[in-house]
């Protein structure tokens, strides 16, 4: 399902279509259709769970295999709020080094305290707009049929 968010990066407004993986990642059953035309992929692990960090390599492989070769990859360490209670299992440096090895940007966030939550999106958009070849192959081609007719009021969003 495609929530759209507006986001300003360097003074310019962008509209983001964000695909929720809806739990299909739980048994690694994301359908290939998720990756179609994606300009950026944000992969998130839990900094308090070593295993979830280790699994990131497989997810990078899957994203690279299915997404546009130019798509921007971004690694996020989540649950930063757990650090205060001594819950950190993966260091910032480990995350950073792994992201660099994968050619991805990196940051740590907390959804609970809202720390850094916007940053991955801003940085991903910033990277995407620097790749004109990525934007050129836009998600919806001009050849797609618009279902905008008579009683069928809403039309597929293309931006």
């Amino acid at each position: 399902m495609i929530p759209t968010k507006k986001l300003a990066v360097r003074g310019k407004a962008y509209k983001l279509n964000i695909f929720d993986t809806a739990g299909q990642e739980r048994f690694r059953t994301l359908s290939t259709s998720y990756y179609r035309g994606a300009h950026g992929v944000i992969l998130v692990y839990d900094i308090s769970n070593k295993k979830s960090f280790v699994s990131m390599e497989k997810w990078f492989d899957e994203a690279r295999m299915n997404a546009n070769p130019d798509a921007v990859l971004y690694l996020v360490g989540s649950k930063l709020d757990k650090v205060a209670a001594g819950g950190r299992a993966v260091s910032y440096e480990q995350g950073k080094a792994f992201a660099e090895a994968q050619g991805a940007e990196f940051c740590e966030i907390s959804s609970k305290t809202r720390e850094n939550v916007k940053r991955p999106f801003v940085e991903v958009v910033d990277k995407i707009v620097q790749k004109p070849q990525l934007i050129a192959g836009a998600t919806h081609s001009s050849k797609a049929i618009d279902f905008n007719m008579g009683s069928l009021t809403s039309s597929p969003c293309s931006c």
Binding site: M1, D20, A22, G23, Q24, R26, R28, T29, S33
Partner: peptide, 20 residues
């Protein structure tokens, strides 16, 4: 196949559990 994937994705968003 694409319609099938979209149906499954809707199922997942609706709380269904998916295993291939």
């Amino acid at each position: 196949s694409e319609i099938a994937q979209v149906g499954c994705r809707a199922g997942a968003v609706g709380g269904g559990t998916y295993m291939l």
